[in-house]
């Protein structure tokens, strides 16, 4: 077979530089989970639909299940473990808990990464926009009520111009 069948890649994961040999076919998700032991990122569908495996690559949410680890050579990746001390994630975690935004917890890591992106990128988002932005993160337990309410609450708390209820 022409081309490389094992590559050594260097990735910054949660602020630490790691260097590992990987097979090209290894997904970023499997690399994070199996090679680095970062099992906070769960696999739900392995074809990019459910959103459970969503992580940040170079600051933007991405599906780790359909992204090859080798394609992340030189990139910076942040997983739910890497959000441990992030103040925005901390606000979201508190809101998720207060609004009962999780039940079995399997989708939660991906939800938090997406939720953080919504809060940072779309500070003016209303409930309808939050729902559209969540369309790529499936939850089978909550019916999304708690997730939507939690994100809307964090957006409201961070807004310099709090919305007035009619």
């Amino acid at each position: 077979m022409a081309g490389k069948t094992t590559l050594t890649i260097g990735i910054e994961v949660n602020g630490e530089q790691v260097t590992h040999a990987v097979e090209p076919r290894t997904s970023l998700a499997d690399f994070l989970r199996d090679t680095l032991g970062l099992t906070g990122t769960n696999l739900g569908c392995e074809h990019g639909v459910c959103g459970a495996c969503t992580v940040e690559i170079d600051g933007a949410p991405a599906r780790s299940c359909i992204t090859l680890a080798v394609a992340c050579d030189g990139a910076s990746v942040r997983t739910t473990e890497g959000l441990a001390d992030d103040p925005v994630a901390e606000e979201l975690r508190a809101a998720f808990k207060a609004h009962h935004a999780l039940q079995c917890g399997y989708c939660t890591s991906g939800m938090l990464v997406t939720a953080r992106d919504i809060v940072m990128r779309l500070p003016e988002a209303d409930e309808a926009r939050v729902r559209v932005e969540l369309a790529g993160n499936l939850c089978r337990c909550t019916g999304y009520m708690g997730v939507v309410n939690a994100i809307v609450a964090v957006l409201a708390a961070r807004s310099p111009h709090p919305r007035q209820d009619p």
């Binding site: 022409a2 490389k4 069948t5 097979e23 090209p24 076919r25 392995e46 074809h47 090859l68 080798v70």
Partner: peptide, 11 residues
Amino acid sequence: MKAPAFAYEKP
């Protein structure tokens, strides 16, 4: 659902 083996180059 794991990909089959393939080679990879990043020219």
